[in-house]
Computed example of a mutant assay.
Amino acid sequence: METNPTRKNRFAVKRGVIPPSSQVLLIHADQWEKLIEEACRNRPLGGDAKYVFVKQLGGAGDGGRDIEARLVLALSERQWDLFQGKHYNHALTPADVFKELVKFFKHLEAKTYPAPRYYYLCAPRGVGNDLHNLLSKPDEFKKRFLDDWKAGKTGLKGRATELTPALEQLILAFDFKSIVECQTRDILEWHALDRKAHFELFGFEGERGDDPLAPDAPATHEQVYVEELLKVYSELIDKGLALDELIASDCGEHFQSQRALFYCAEGLKTFSRDTYGEAEFDALLDMVLTGIKPKVKSPRHKTGLDRLEAGTEGAQLLVVNDSALAPKLRPGDLPGTCHHLVNQRRLKWVK
């Protein structure tokens, strides 16, 4: 069945909130590495593929690996990516990177780890022009690195003696095309794929997208509340109804309107899950149940339809300012939560 495209939940910068690209300039170096780690966990690698193992290793003994991201479980040659996080108050220069590469190649020679697929340079302010030009010319990059190491230049003063013939051969054989910049915008884009973590870290206000449309036929996850609605209409006309009979009956439009309410709340549930986590929507359901239960359970109600209308109308009148979702509520949301409560078997219309 063809459906209309919907506008997905996304982020909107709340007035007064500093954009993430600016916020990352102010965070601590350890937070920057943690951000890269979380972003790598979300990073799409094509299709449904993601890294199978990601670990932050920054600190003493990290072997020049701030973040290790593996394509396969075993740490194997060219089957992992190394992310080097550098949170400096300036764009990266060759002097910043050459000393890190000395450490990297010495660990490769010592077989601390196998050669990675890529060596990513991650810096909030990016790489400077000199380093950018070197990265774009791998052979020239390799030559300058070796020449400057031998001459003790570009941050390598006093380290010329550390370049052994064996280490030089290893460097000459290494493909410098694998040393690349990982831009901050890419890191933030990967991190934003976990909307909840992104919201918590950067304080963004989520923008709610379009709610899903109810399909022509009820889906599997609608089964419980749909069965309860069937009981309501069967009781009303004093005749057992199958689903197809209900849809074709005089109650059909009312039934479909209730399904539309369910899907309004389903959109709210998705927004809540992506922004605050599932617990926030569950907390809203608790509030609604507390607010409508006395109305639904009133002995004045003799039929399931009475209780259904008491519940949905009562929900519409509730004030739920304590919920973080309150500013995002739409007219059908709270009545729709009644059907979610029924779907969880926490509420019934027919005795």
Rank of each mutant, 00 (worst) to 15 (best):
P215G: 00
D333F: 04
P212H: 12
L329F: 12
A279I: 04
F83L: 15
F11N: 04
R208N: 02
H87T: 01
H132M: 09
E200T: 02
H221T: 13
I67S: 06
D139L: 14
P215Y: 03
E245W: 05
H198V: 12
E253S: 15
F271M: 15
T154N: 07
A192N: 08
H340D: 02
L305C: 04
G332I: 02
G158N: 13
C251S: 11
G47W: 11
Q84H: 12
D322T: 11
H340V: 08
S76P: 02
V320R: 03
H254C: 05
E37K: 08
K177V: 06
T220Y: 10
W149G: 04
Y113T: 08
Y120P: 00
Y276G: 03
A151D: 05
R78T: 15
G126R: 05
K239T: 14
L308Y: 02
P335T: 04
D30N: 04
Y118H: 09
Q223R: 15
R65K: 15
P294Q: 11
L101P: 01
L170W: 08
D48L: 10
C40K: 01
D148G: 09
S22N: 02
D250R: 10
E227G: 13
A60W: 10
R15Y: 05
P19G: 04
L146G: 03
T3G: 14
D274Y: 03
L172Y: 06
T275Y: 14
L134C: 07
A315S: 11
V52K: 06
F174V: 08
K196N: 02
D30P: 00
T337N: 09
H339P: 07
P19I: 02
Q23P: 04
E309N: 13
R65H: 04
A49G: 06
P294T: 09
W349Q: 07
I36S: 05
T303S: 09
G304M: 14
H339V: 06
K8I: 09
K297D: 07
A326L: 06
F104H: 11
Q316N: 08
K142A: 03
N89T: 12
G126V: 03
D210S: 14
A39W: 06
G240M: 10
Q79H: 00
K111Q: 11
S234C: 13
V13E: 06
E309D: 09
Q316H: 15
A310G: 13
N42I: 00
P294C: 09
G126T: 00
E68Q: 12
W349E: 07
H90K: 10
Q223F: 12
D186R: 09
S178G: 07
G209V: 02
D210T: 14
G311M: 01
E280K: 13
K153T: 11
V17Y: 01
A310K: 14
K8S: 08
L121K: 02
L230P: 00
A192R: 13
F83H: 06
K137H: 08
L26P: 00
A217V: 15
A49R: 03
L268S: 13
K348C: 11
S22M: 14
S76V: 10
Y51H: 04
K153W: 09
H301E: 03
G128I: 05
F271N: 07
E33H: 00
V52L: 07
G206Q: 13
L213E: 05
K106T: 02
L101W: 04
R10T: 09
G311L: 03
A95P: 00
H301P: 01
K293V: 04
C338P: 01
L188Y: 08
V180L: 06
L268K: 05
L213I: 14
H87S: 13
L156F: 05
